[in-house]
């Protein structure tokens, strides 16, 4: 019942705060990696280069689905903003179901921009199966397709080091976030600005996905403070010998 309570409270807060954010939009603190992402989107249209958005190899039927869905939300906006470019974006995934959704999301972005006829189905790709197969398939995209920025949002493990190394060789900007601790530490070491922990889920809010994404950030902050208070209360009660 605790789980149902958390879900209910989160849903209620999300709906209420979304309505509130629609009326009074708020400002978010600056995250260098997401500022760089915002700039990379604009630059790719201006200088005729391509963006590579990779959503990792997390499936949708397990705990990694959340990061994949966050990546898809960002992909939807990026494809809408860059679809009219001479070099439209290319997206890759290492899971077949995620690959299908990647193609569908890219197409939705083109539709929203009013240029559905420009959509090429092979711009959404399944580059391989399994962590290393996926990375090995995604590495040549950086060197062969006039990429200006690699945007890695999803589930990446240690193999993300191969992608960042390929980007470094081609002097391509890397903006990366993963829900996996090994992936996060490697992205921290090998990218210009890295996103840590839940910052992966903030990408939508920073590139203008709307009030619901802003509301999500506020609800996450509220829930985080509740967890902090519960942890302190638990520690105090244990210290006092009451539990």
């Amino acid at each position: 019942m605790i789980e149902l309570g958390i879900l209910g409270v989160s849903a209620f807060l999300l709906l209420i705060i979304t309505v509130w954010k629609r009326r009074s939009p708020s400002v978010v603190r600056e995250l260098p990696a997401l500022v760089r992402l915002y700039r990379a989107i604009g630059l790719s249209v201006e200088d005729g280069t391509r963006l590579h958005i990779s959503l990792g190899h997390g499936g949708l039927l397990n705990a990694r689905g959340g990061s994949a869905l966050a990546g898809l939300a960002a992909l939807r906006l990026i494809s809408e903003r860059t679809s009219v470019s001479d070099q439209p974006p290319v997206a890759s995934a290492g899971d077949p179901t995620l690959g299908l959704l990647t193609q569908d999301t890219l197409q939705a972005g083109y539709q929203a921009a009013g240029v559905e006829e420009l959509y090429v189905p092979t711009s959404g790709r399944v580059t391989g199966f399994g962590p290393f197969g996926f990375a090995a398939g995604a590495m040549p995209i950086t060197s062969n397709e006039n990429i200006s920025a690699n945007i890695l949002l999803g589930h990446f493990g240690a193999e993300v080091g191969l992608l960042t190394e390929a980007s470094e060789r081609e002097n391509v900007t890397v903006i990366g976030a993963s829900d996996d601790l090994a992936g996060q530490s490697i992205l921290f070491a090998s990218s210009q600005d890295s996103l840590i922990g839940e910052e992966l889920f903030a990408s939508g809010a920073y590139i203008g996905a709307g009030p619901s994404h802003m509301a999500s950030l506020t609800v996450q902050d509220v829930l985080r403070w509740v967890i902090v208070l519960v942890l302190f209360a638990g520690a105090f009660l244990k210290f006092a010998g009451m539990i």
Partner: peptide
């Protein structure tokens, strides 16, 4: 701490879907 943050993000992303 990081995993709690990721879980909260996953929860809210799931709710939006």
């Amino acid at each position: 701490g990081i995993l709690i943050g990721v879980s909260l993000g996953t929860l809210l992303t799931g709710l939006r879907v």
